[in-house]
Design a binder for these strands. Structure first.
Lengths: 340, 340
DNA sequence: TTGAAAGCGCTAACAG
DNA sequence: CTGTTAGCGCTTTCAA
């Protein structure tokens, strides 16, 4: 492969490894321009590339960060990844990626592997089921930023979107469009703050708009492909009076719509629907979907920036929770009224 | 951070580093069970983790592979990535990812960085505009597998999907559904074999079905968001007699459909449409989209398996081109006729 | 302005 | 069955 080392370069240029190293790292202050040019020329001639392993071993900085995600299939995450990638590129970092698949054991194992590889820091969408692990990382002072989900009781960098606000936006939009029986659909999962918060946001928005506890309709559904469609079918038969559904996930929304159509109900005439997450296909659905957009690219970008800053800066940023704002994108799935 | 090294473990256990190293690497043949247990215990007590950098430096194997993609946004690629990820997990490899953004300079730079980090091999969706680079990699014997696009004239591992076949499937389906004026839409890009091949497949399928050169309608369009919609609008006005469009890309298809609807034309009554790539949303479009499915997950999986095999095996697999089969998924965007 | 030398943490002959 | 020793390719005092 690439067998040329710093010694080869030094020998050829008739200088010491030290000098080459200095030049490599831009420490020009102490090298004569002449030698510098000579060395640079040799480097080019040899197509020499410093071995990052050796460098990292010595300097305990690898300029690599890791990201652990849990579901690449969801375009929400590819967008986050893009944000992270762009920042890495601009900061001279490389990126390692892995998939916890929502399993705490996998999450723990991957984090260990990342540490083993001396990755400088980690961006993670946490399963939230490894509190002791997160705590330990914090104590080790290991640069870490958790995104999308809140990690309770542990003071680490945490970047989330305001899910209560998002839900509130959705519910109010529905109410302003004259809907009277509004249900919320949510995946079963006790540990995930995002979904809890969306349901909570739904509840408070309903209550503060004059609805009562009895008006709250919360339908849980399974994340297994296809099962939301079944759930929706059954739900719609059991609740013929429901005239609006707030669907709290982008994949879920697709199945909800499918079920509605299968029952020959019309959107938005019979049922209005607000989805969560703006995707490439949202506006191409029939009808174009009104949805809550999350700043996913920004989340990735901010997370990576924050992480890299805590890695390189002397004065580390104080950990805390950064809350990003969701946004209502109005299209035609709730009726024609514009704005709220 | 994690300051405990192999020496600490050795000292504590009262053995040499060699012994610890052997145990770490599962070379149990030459260690007494008693010492082994003692060492293992110390490792656990210390929560010791070998430094992968030092290991890689010594053994010139990092157990990391790199993947260079060009467009994370497209779900086709997230699926490929998933395939690669799954194989890595099963084989004890970690994955570095980057985004060439379709720019040859970026591609070259990232490949260099990967080599600098002593990544054991690379999976790449090549821009195909760096022939000398690919050639050099081949000569260096650097493990590399190119996916999705054909690299002409260079004998490296290359995994592609049969695009002519895919196009042929699409065109024949359209013809069997009675369409007479069939157009193909393709992105402008002279270097990308996938798109060329789809157009060629369209042409041959048309010609062998009794159409003549004059019947071929090839519409190029720009990859910039929104511009395909404009192109389609203009196209449909200029070609009012066209009754079918074969759209060679999944994003493109969304815009084509949007334009068709804007003109109040009906799918499939007025215009039939076959898309390329099966996505999560294909079946939820209005009407559900008939499309050519590519085995994207398999492509990622096979690529990673092949790459890892050439990395670890003594007898390297012979490079060559592996062709995967596309598949026609029939839904309702071409009329109701089932099968071909 | 430059270089010698001592490691970073690990592996792998080679000896015992 | 276990240890000694010599590096892997780089950075970084310290000295010249």
């Amino acid at each position: 492969m690439n067998k040329v080392t710093i010694s080869d370069v030094a020998a050829k240029a008739g200088v010491s490894k030290t000098t080459v190293s200095r030049i490599l790292n831009g420490i020009y202050d102490h090298t004569k321009e002449e030698t510098r040019n000579r060395v640079l020329q040799v480097i080019k001639d040899f197509d020499y590339r410093p071995n990052a392993l050796a460098k990292g071993l010595k300097s305990s900085r690898t300029n690599v960060i890791g990201i652990v995600l849990s579901n690449l299939k969801n375009p929400f995450w590819s967008t986050v990844l893009e944000g992270v990638e762009d920042v890495c590129r601009d900061s001279g970092f490389n990126l390692m990626i892995c998939n916890s698949d929502e399993e705490p054991e996998m999450e723990e194992q991957y984090i260990r592997e990342f540490q083993t590889r001396r990755v400088d820091g980690i961006v993670i969408n946490p399963t939230v089921r490894n509190p002791i692990l997160y705590q330990k990382l914090l104590e080790q002072n290991y640069p870490l930023v958790a995104i999308n989900r809140r990690i309770p009781d542990i003071c680490i960098h945490n970047i989330v979107v305001d899910n209560r606000k998002g839900a509130s936006l959705a519910v109010h939009h529905l109410i302003h469009n004259g809907r009277k029986k509004i249900a919320v659909f949510v995946y079963k999962n006790l540990n995930v703050s995002t979904w809890q918060e969306r349901v909570e946001g739904y509840c408070s928005a309903m209550l503060e708009s004059g609805f009562t506890e009895e008006d709250l309709i919360i339908q849980e559904t399974d994340q297994l492909s296809g099962s939301t469609k079944e759930t929706t079918l059954k739900f719609l038969r059991d609740h013929p009076d429901v005239d609006a559904i707030f669907s709290t996930n982008n994949m879920m929304t697709l199945e909800v719509i499918e079920a509605i159509k299968e029952l020959k109900l019309q959107i938005p005439k019979d049922i209005a629907i607000v989805g969560y997450d703006e995707t490439i296909w949202s506006k191409h659905l029939d009808p174009p979907l009104t949805t809550i957009k999350q700043p996913s690219y920004e989340m990735g970008k901010i997370a990576a920036q924050l992480l890299i800053k805590t890695i390189v800066a002397k004065r580390k940023p104080k950990p805390g929770t950064i809350v990003l704002e969701p946004q209502l994108i109005i299209r035609n799935s709730c009726g024609s009224q514009i704005g709220k």
